[in-house]
Simulated assay, not measured.
Amino acid sequence: MPGRLRAALPPYSDLLIGAILWACQMLLSAGLALYIRNRLETSHSAELAALYFFGALLAWPLALPCARFIAYRRRIETRFAAFFLALAAFTILLTAFLFAMDYRAFYSQWHAPFGSVTWAFQFVFTGASAVYQFSVLGLRLFMPLGLLCLFGTSFILAKRMR
């Protein structure tokens, strides 16, 4: 197990540079999808760009070690699948989390005082509503370019890891 844990920790340069590159790819994906759908004619394009950029930026340092841990000493198909699933899951989850926190910040002005039972219910259901809304509307911004980037990045990572 120590070999597996050691192999799961990538060099800091891979974490930093990879996070920036992955975030730029997801930013381009969201930008292209917005352009295809409405020629970027939305008043929230800068906020959406930041949301997808920071969601991917935060996802990379979590997804990479997780996938490397799973893919340790496996065949290339398994490594590809590990990177594909980890990158997809962490990117979607962290982008949805950031969307939910932004959604929560907007609706918090009408919520009960912090710490009350009512506040707890409002927090949970506001977050659940935001995640649902993101899954219905926000996941589309990862298509079509995001899926291609996911395939390409997963393939490159699977080939690099031995």
Rank of each mutant, 00 (worst) to 15 (best):
L5H: 09
P10K: 04
P10D: 02
P10I: 04
P10V: 07
S13V: 12
D14G: 04
G18C: 03
G18H: 01
A23F: 03
M26F: 00
M26T: 04
L27V: 07
L28Q: 14
A30R: 01
A33R: 13
Y35T: 12
Y35K: 12
R37E: 13
S43F: 07
S43D: 14
H44G: 00
A46F: 09
A46G: 09
A49S: 15
L51P: 05
Y52M: 06
F53H: 03
L57C: 10
W60V: 00
L62P: 03
P65W: 02
F69E: 10
I70S: 07
A71C: 08
Y72A: 11
R73P: 07
R75M: 06
I76H: 03
A82S: 15
A82D: 09
A82H: 08
L85D: 07
L85T: 12
L85V: 14
L85Y: 12
A86C: 08
A86H: 03
L87Q: 05
A89V: 13
F90L: 02
L94C: 13
L94K: 12
A96V: 00
L98C: 11
L98F: 15
F99P: 11
A100Y: 05
A100Q: 06
D102V: 06
Y103S: 05
R104H: 08
A105R: 13
F106M: 03
F106D: 06
Y107P: 05
A112G: 03
F114K: 11
S116F: 02
W119R: 15
A120C: 03
Q122N: 03
F123T: 12
V124D: 00
F125K: 01
G127Y: 05
A130G: 03
V131I: 15
Y132V: 08
Q133K: 14
V136Y: 12
R140K: 13
F142Y: 14
M143T: 12
P144W: 13
G146K: 02
L147S: 13
L147P: 01
L148M: 14
L148W: 10
F151R: 12
F151I: 15
T153N: 06
S154F: 02
F155W: 15
L157Q: 08
L157S: 14
A158P: 01
R160Y: 00
R160G: 00
M161D: 07
